[in-house]
Nucleic acid binder design. Structure first.
Length: 468
DNA sequence: GCATGATCATGC
DNA sequence: GCATGATCATGC
């Protein structure tokens, strides 16, 4: 939570920390709550469901008059919970050990709630983390128990008017996904210990990410790291937004497709699922799952087959979505090479010219963990499932992808019909991707041109596979 | 065999 | 209806 001073709120308007004068408006008489009890804090928080902060408490004039009213979490603490969080790095409610997080939801295509963005937990201190163990970590101290409050984010609505649209949740890391989260934390620490804080990437890990923090522009000052002279971008521990989604929807209770446990990591669980099929023919595997390949142009066939293998015949793997893992199939020819490049979502000419790399959808996709499911045509002409592996893009290649993206942005503004070709980068290129030849969208030049997308070069895919 | 362009099937 | 992942098609 931001400290009060950051909000510019006079502390004179605060009630004494332990005297709970809960003058609640709106005809709702609320009981007090016990600051030492997580359950009591949760119960008190739940009275906000369906309401906004401004509906429930009288906010002082200095807050109401401020144009930027600050972050909702801090306002909640002060004016709803009447609580002043400690200035140390521990949880907001120190006696109960509860950290308060208020986070925004938006509606997806199906009108379901989803997290607007990743949930930032706490800054990564590169100097300190190398001396921590998981058990003694500042992350665990602060965030092992969190009160998560979810409001509907709408840009034009002031923070104090945003309604809490679902019930708050008391999130206990121990009960949820501590095994995976701990591994994520260890991985991030390890990278810093190797002097690679500047190479941290969101794709490194599964649920807990090292998320870029701060403005992120070229002027953003870099932080020192203990085992390298190179400065590193400021990063914070954060939960991946798809992971937050699963927390909101309560999905976690039912998705146990991969059978991750204290002794089986995400990677091991995936490997275990695929191991039974290694070397088997695509035909044999599809027979097993009763999948009739209706035509050769069934373009999603190998992908469907991959999901079946992972989900024991089911049609989805919620853990993949929760972890934001990108499933991609790769088909190798008899020569062991991937023939096709790998496509990514299309972009609009009019949008990309105003985007920044850091916020681009291409980076959002690339900066993930990938699950490659690899098929290979044997010398006899029969296609077999070879293996599956988890991968994320090395830092240097991500930089090259950025270069291609920046070049694309630059050239779209000049001539949207002349974009980076496969020969211009060893990593990525731009190519059409549409329904057909008539699928054209407007260009900055005022014309119409075929819809385009970013692709990873087939030669790059092959070099990645070769190195693994 | 590769670069480039075109298009299909699917799920939401 | 449309974006997306994937594959097909053509020309050199």
């Amino acid at each position: 939570m931001a400290k009060n001073s950051k909000l510019g709120i006079s502390t004179k308007s605060l009630s004494p920390a332990n005297k709970l004068d809960l003058s609640i408006r709106g005809g709702v008489a609320l009981e007090s709550y016990d600051k030492t009890s997580p359950d009591s804090i949760l119960a008190f928080a739940s009275h906000l469901t369906g309401k906004s902060l401004a509906e429930v408490v009288d906010l002082p004039a200095d807050v109401m008059n401020k144009k930027n009213k600050g972050d909702l979490g801090s306002l909640l603490e002060i004016y709803y919970f009447k609580h002043r969080p400690p200035t140390n790095s521990g949880p907001d409610f120190e006696q109960a050990g509860v950290e308060l997080k208020a986070t925004g939801l938006v509606r997806d295509k199906n009108r379901n709630f989803k997290a607007k963005e990743r949930l930032v937990l706490t800054m990564i201190n590169y100097e300190d983390i190398v001396n921590e163990t998981w058990e003694s970590s500042s992350l665990l101290k602060k965030c092992q128990l969190m009160l998560l409050m979810f409001y509907l984010y709408e840009k034009q609505v002031e923070v104090i008017d945003r309604k809490f649209v679902v019930d708050p949740i008391l999130y206990r890391m121990v009960e949820w996904d501590i095994d995976t989260i701990r591994r994520d934390w260890e991985f991030i620490k390890q990278k810093i210990q190797e002097g690679k804080a500047h190479e941290l990437s969101e794709g490194d890990t599964v649920f807990l990410r090292a998320a870029r923090k701060g403005a992120g522009g070229p002027d953003e000052p870099l932080r020192k790291q203990p085992y390298s002279q190179l400065g590193a971008k400021a990063r914070a521990f954060a939960f991946k937004s798809t992971y937050v989604d699963s927390v909101v929807s309560g999905q976690r209770a039912i998705d146990n497709v991969l059978k991750i446990s204290a002794t089986v990591s995400f990677e091991e669980a995936v490997a275990e699922k695929f191991s039974a099929y290694s070397g088997k023919s695509v035909f044999e595997i599809s027979e097993k799952f009763g999948m009739a390949k209706t035509s050769n142009s069934q373009k999603g066939f190998h992908r469907q087959l991959a999901v079946k293998m992972l989900a024991d015949g089911g049609n989805s793997v919620p853990e993949l979505e929760r972890a934001g893992i990108e499933l991609k199939t790769i088909r190798l020819g008899a020569n062991g090479k991937a023939k096709e490049s790998m496509s990514f979502p299309g972009f609009k000419f009019l949008d990309i010219v105003n985007e920044h790399w850091e916020e681009s959808s291409f980076l959002e996709k690339l900066d993930r963990k990938f699950l490659f499911v690899i098929y290979r045509t044997s010398s006899s002409g029969q296609e077999i499932f070879e293996r599956a592996l988890l991968w994320n893009m090395p830092y240097s290649d991500l930089m090259e992808a950025q270069r291609v993206w920046e070049e694309t942005k630059r050239r779209v503004a000049i001539d949207a019909t002349d974009l980076p070709k496969i020969s211009e980068s060893h990593v990525a290129h731009v190519r059409p991707k549409g329904k057909d030849g008539s699928d054209k969208i407007p260009t900055p030049q005022g014309g119409m041109h075929l819809r385009q997308a970013f692709w990873l070069n087939s030669s790059y895919i092959n070099s990645v596979l070769h190195n693994l």
